[in-house]
Design a protein around this nucleic acid. Structure first.
Lengths: 193, 193
DNA sequence: GTTTTTTTTTAACTTAAGTGAACGAAATTA
DNA sequence: TAATTTCGTTCACTTAAGTTAAAAAAAAAC
């Protein structure tokens, strides 16, 4: 299980056995069942997550309606907003599949950083990389229509469309479930011509 | 001029005179005139920017049309995508006002990090913070209509609406300039009732 | 200070998303 | 397995954004 993490990290740094042991000893590996809510609106938390296997989503509840804004799957990490600015969370995080993830808080990070400074470099690089990727996704979203966004997702993350309920996908694409249905029918219609 | 930077940084770390001098000696402070293009599509570059005064924007040119995706103003930083993944840039960066900014590349960063490890901590924290903020902005964008996005911007960044040309604002809001005009007229109409 | 260019607004028309309701399919629960 | 809830799709209707064109306003260039 932890090999998934070490494999991923090996793309960025070479870890000694001692360093790996230090990570394992933090006891950050967890298995969570489908449907489990990791964080609720209004809660304070210091936990950041990194998905090793499975899928989690973040969503807001606005006027009683769920608005799904992100999915995190294999080798993707999430530091909730509330961890960064120490305020109650504005959104929920829950598992849409049985999921294996790591859970870590800033205190644990500092502890590791002090012992092994290369981890701080790793975290800096990862978060800079993620920031650039995130900015690009946002750019793409802005300059695309809902239909283009869907087609784009079909190209770039076909798995998501399979493993995620459609009504959750819809708000992820910035539209209503009915519009997603219609849009898919429209695409199918076009492809027949 | 550099005080703007050190003032900002003082919120995160305390810098010694020696450290400040090390930064100044990197010769990263630049003044650029309105209209200057800092980066063009297809170019490779290693420069990241941090705006001390003024405003820069990133935009794509798609089918001959400019698509503005972001503005960076006072105390906001930008590491272009092409710096992170070493590919030619997909977008342009230019100044929409006379601007004072810092320009730094990863090599300079590494040099500073080696001399003063606290800078790496600073950069990690800044980019984690930015990532969380960025994610939240994206969330807000997804769950809002164009009209809500405009009203939201009016609340949160009224300065942008003043200092930025409307047609650039429009694509930033994910719509066409004509739609922005109409939307503003609609809001004005509503407020009269 | 006038001309030229760029930007913003307005309008008419087209296309697509939002809304509310209904229906069948699928998944959950009893 | 039957009952119930949740989910996905379809429909009719409303609202708003995209498109094309033109005019007005503002900014830049001469």
């Amino acid at each position: 299980m932890q090999d998934l993490l070490f494999n991923f990290l090996s793309k960025y740094v070479t870890l000694t056995e001692e360093e790996k042991k230090a990570i394992i000893s933090l006891d950050i590996f967890h298995s969570v069942k489908k449907g489990t809510t990791l964080l609720k609106e209004g809660q304070k938390s210091n936990d950041g997550y990194f998905v090793l296997k499975g899928c989690i989503r973040t969503y807001y509840i606005i006027d009683g309606e769920e608005k799904t804004t992100a999915f995190y799957t294999e080798m993707e990490g999430l530091t909730p907003h509330c961890v960064v600015d120490k305020t109650p969370s504005q959104y929920y995080i829950s598992c849409i599949e049985d999921t294996i993830l790591t859970v870590a808080n800033p205190e644990m990070e500092v502890e590791i950083f002090n012992k092994f400074p290369k981890f701080e470099t790793l975290c800096r690089i990862l978060s800079e990389e993620l920031l650039a990727k995130q900015q690009f996704n946002f750019d793409e979203f802005k300059i695309s229509s809902p239909e283009q966004r869907y087609l784009n997702l079909l190209q770039k993350r076909p798995d998501l469309i399979q493993r995620v309920p459609q009504h959750q996908l819809a708000s992820y694409l910035g539209i209503k479930p009915q519009s997603l249905s219609r849009l898919k029918a429209r695409i199918l219609e076009k492809s027949k011509e």
